[in-house]
């Protein structure tokens, strides 16, 4: 981390410049220190794939990956992402091809209203990064900070399991 260049505000100064790599693309943006990461994404950058649900650190609809870890972006300041990387749902699809987790939600009917889906998928991506073959219990534990009020979770668990299987098969095919 480039601490020497890290941002500091002082009296009278309203914004500070941060450098963040989002879904692989660099961004240099002026933000207020109090700007939450989710507002930075949605309002400063117009990336509305990340949702605001409860806005109180409960529901997980705003989940993004910050330096590879799934976090609730309503409970992180954008300045904390300075010099770091953020991954959002917009970065999952590549060149018109859906990410296996998106395929999984499609195939297994993992959403109804879809509001929780971006957060669910980002949490799942982080899980599958660490654990290639999660058990049902491990999947349920991993998404225990993401609330869904439609599905009863059954198809979400199936969707994540589907993605895990596809990702394993792809990895084996390449090996």
């Amino acid at each position: 981390m480039a601490v020497e260049t890290a941002p500091t505000t002082s009296k009278g100064q309203r914004t500070l410049k941060i450098h963040v790599t989002i879904n692989g693309a660099p961004h240099d943006v002026d933000v207020e220190a109090r700007t939450l990461l989710v507002h930075f994404l949605r309002e400063n950058l117009g990336m509305t794939g990340t949702h605001i649900g409860c806005d109180t650190t409960n529901c997980g609809a705003c989940t993004v990956l910050l330096n590879g870890r799934a976090v609730k972006s309503c409970t992180v300041f954008a300045v904390q992402a300075d010099q770091g990387t953020v991954a959002t749902v917009e970065g999952l699809e590549k060149d018109g091809k859906l990410h296996p987790i998106q395929e999984g939600f499609h195939q297994e009917h993992g959403l109804q209203c879809g509001f929780c889906t971006p957060g669910m998928m980002m949490t799942a991506v982080a899980l599958l990064e660490k654990n290639k073959q999660p058990t049902e219990l491990e999947i349920r534990e991993a998404i225990s900070g993401n609330l869904c009020r439609c599905t009863g979770y059954v198809n979400i668990v199936k969707s994540i399991d589907h993605a895990a299987r596809v990702m394993r098969e792809t990895a084996e095919g390449k090996a």
Binding site: A6, P7, T8, L16, A33
Partner: peptide
Amino acid sequence: MIPASFEYAVARD
């Protein structure tokens, strides 16, 4: 919800 304004500094150590 947006917090009230504050000054902010990153501590080196």
